[in-house]
Amino acid sequence: DSCIQFTRHASDVLLNLNRLRSRDVLTDVTILVNRQPFRAHKTVLMACSGLFYSIFTDSLKCNLNAISLDPKVDPDGFAILLGFMYTSRLSLRESSIVAVMNTAVYLQMDHVVDTCHRFIQSSDRS
């Protein structure tokens, strides 16, 4: 009994999904953040965010092709988190970290919230 584990497979799939997003191929939803549109794949959004999981598992909402987020959500913070969903890389800058963390709380991305919190704490100490 043996198997071959392709160790890059998850990241290769994610890279291709991000290419599909950038080319708007099979994207199936527009997320509006303060009227700024972001195209994405519902499956990726719901795999990464508790909020989107709740929305797209709701039979009344799962077929929506446009969703407006709370107007308090920062579009730049959302853009950073959407990039993270498709790359596994989270851009952390002092200027944007609070917006990213607040947006991650809203999107129910708990591990990202914890990471932002630790980053802020370590910045405060240094």
């Binding site: 009994d1 043996s2 198997c3 071959i4 584990q5 392709f6 160790t7 890059r8 497979h9 290769d12 799939v13 890279l15 291709n16 290419r19 599909l20 950038s22 080319r23």
Partner: peptide
Amino acid sequence: QGVTTIKEMGRSIHEIPRQD
């Protein structure tokens, strides 16, 4: 009996180009 796993470090699928 243990399972033997061989790790393949190379690309696992084709790469979708940025643009056609």
